[in-house]
Simulated scan of single mutants.
Amino acid sequence: MGRLTGGDPSLLRRINSAVVLHALRGADFPTFTDLTRITGLSRPTVEGVIEGLMVAGLVVEDAPEEDGETRRQGRPARRFRFRAEAGHLLGIEIGPHRVAAMLSGLDGRIIGAGSREVTETAPADERLDRVRTTVADLLRRAGVARSSLRAVGVGSPGIVEADGTVRLGTALPEWTGLALGERLRRSFRCPVLVENDANAAAVAEHWKGAATDSDDIVFVLAGLSPGAGSLIGGRLHRGYGGAAGEIGALHLLGRGATPETLLSTTDQPLHALDEPAVAQVFADAKRGDAQARAAMERFIERLVHDVAALVLALDPELVVIGGWAAGLEDVLEPLRGELARFCLRPPRVALSLLGDSAVATGALRLALDHVEEQLFAVEGTVTARR
């Protein structure tokens, strides 16, 4: 598209279309009169915009069922709705032990989900094949054509570049240096947005989880190699190189033992991806095993200190704990106590409300954000013209 100027009629059409679309998404079967009142646009302008949106397939004339009394009063006003089914979005999680996908319409309402297990030792090609199989099965079950996809969001472990390349990814085999975005774009004829998994989970909690009422948050994806995502003023904070929140590397700064060693009850460290072994240590601790209890307390102390360091730097309103530690109530009180010691105004601390669906949900939200930027790109920057 060519350069637009302030008086360019094509720009004004885009502004008015964005305003009307916003009104349609927030109203229940509005009429022309409703849209004129909500948007402040003239009726002829609204009628012209609606006609164009109907041709584009984004709006349809529709109305709830009317009773006989309403029909006897005369011809009803024309009513319209935003066609959420005009396109679809995917959110994908790629993890050590499974891949998962969520499907929604253009309104972000989830209409299907699926997941498949994968071994932690699976090479990159096998893991990506599992992603494609999971997506194909989900689309088939939902009756959605691949060509209907408008955007795909992906949450992955590792430090992710803007183009979707994993600059460093130690959690998965063959992941460091993987051109993940490029590889996945071969499977979809739409934009593919790749994000760090903790960042995606932070977005999810802000959208539908424990942080819906907070714009300054830290989400901790707890594990033997913990990571964190943060929102500042409601916007995802990635850092200059995309490595913001990599608290799993703090033990390298002279902290001595690794988390895998701290949580071990033997002379051998746990494997960073051995979730059953981790779960067993916590289960043994809750049953009163002294060695397991000591290991759990060592690990929690390290996690609490790592999170406290990030909180001191960012001063969030809320800290959300997710990952496999989301069900471990023992993390909350030590964290609250430590933050109260060091922070002028300690943040609230809560467990994730989304559990193991947080990463895929956040990836879906990233896809929705991308589509909304296209549909409503000018909204909020220029006032609509009558």
Rank of each mutant, 00 (worst) to 15 (best):
T121L: 11
R293G: 15
G241Y: 10
R116C: 04
G26T: 13
G2P: 05
G158D: 07
G7I: 11
A294V: 10
A101W: 00
A145E: 13
L149M: 11
L149E: 05
I159Y: 00
L149Y: 09
P276W: 08
S156Q: 03
L354F: 05
R78K: 15
S230I: 12
G91S: 02
E372H: 14
T134W: 06
E47W: 01
P316I: 11
T39H: 04
E126S: 12
L106P: 00
W324N: 12
C190E: 03
L149N: 05
D129L: 12
A124V: 09
E117I: 04
T383S: 11
R71N: 07
H305V: 12
V60H: 07
F80P: 06
G153N: 07
T39C: 01
D8Q: 07
S147G: 10
P276Y: 06
A204C: 02
R385Q: 15
N16S: 12
G327Q: 09
A18H: 05
D330M: 11
A292I: 06
L318D: 03
E66V: 15
R386W: 10
V320P: 02
L90D: 00
T36G: 08
L366P: 01
T176F: 06
Q291A: 13
L351T: 14
S352N: 05
H88Q: 07
G57F: 02
D137H: 09
L263R: 06
E297W: 03
H305L: 12
E51A: 15
L193P: 00
L224A: 06
G327K: 07
D163L: 09
E301F: 06
E69A: 13
H305P: 00
V60L: 10
M102F: 10
V160M: 02
L375M: 11
G245K: 06
V46F: 04
A367C: 10
H305R: 15
T361E: 09
T170Q: 13
K208Q: 15
G143I: 07
A162S: 13
G169L: 02
G26P: 04
G74C: 07
G229V: 02
T31P: 06
D8M: 08
A243H: 13
G68R: 13
T5M: 12
T261S: 14
G48C: 00
V382E: 11
